[in-house]
Simulated assay, not measured.
Amino acid sequence: MGGCDSCQDELNALCRHAGFTPRITSHSDDMVVVQSLVAAGAGVATLPGLALQAHRRPDIHATELTGLHRQIYAATFGDPPDPTAVTAVLATLTGAITPAN
C-alpha cells in the first residue's frame, strides 16, 4: 500500500534496496485505513513508528525496520528569529537526531 508521493518514493527505495519492486494496489495517507487494509489481509505496508504509537490495531503485527535513513522537516511560521519556544523545540528535536551510518 502506498501513501503520499514522498511516502511511496520511500517505500519504492526500501523495496529496491531489498531487491524487489512492490506491487502497489491501494493508496491512503490515513494510517488507520492502512492498518485496517492490512488487518483485512489486503497487503502489507510501511508506517512511521509515531503512527503506530498514536493508534495501533491489536490485530496487526509490526516489525521495526532498523538502519534506515529518514528525513524529518520542521515547519515554522514567519521569518527568524523564531520565538523562544520554537527555538527550544527545534533544539530538542535536533539533539534527538541519531546520525545516519
Score class of each variant (00 low, 15 high):
M1N: 07
G2F: 02
G3N: 00
D5G: 09
S6G: 07
Q8V: 10
Q8I: 07
D9E: 14
D9A: 15
E10N: 09
L11V: 12
L11E: 14
L11D: 11
N12K: 14
N12P: 00
A13M: 05
R16G: 08
R16A: 15
R16P: 00
H17P: 00
T21E: 13
P22D: 03
P22S: 06
S26M: 11
S26G: 08
D29H: 08
V32K: 14
V33N: 09
V33I: 09
Q35G: 05
V38M: 01
A40Y: 01
A42G: 00
G43Q: 02
G43I: 02
G49E: 13
G49T: 11
A51K: 01
L52F: 07
L52A: 08
A54D: 10
A54T: 13
H55T: 08
R56D: 03
H61L: 11
H61D: 09
A62M: 04
T63E: 09
T66M: 10
G67Q: 06
G67Y: 07
L68H: 09
H69N: 12
R70H: 11
R70W: 05
R70E: 06
R70Y: 07
R70Q: 08
A74N: 01
T76N: 06
T76C: 13
F77Y: 11
G78W: 04
D82L: 15
D82T: 03
V89P: 00
L90K: 12
L90F: 02
A91L: 00
T92K: 03
T94N: 08
T94F: 00
T94D: 10
A96F: 04
I97H: 07
T98Q: 14
T98C: 04
N101H: 15
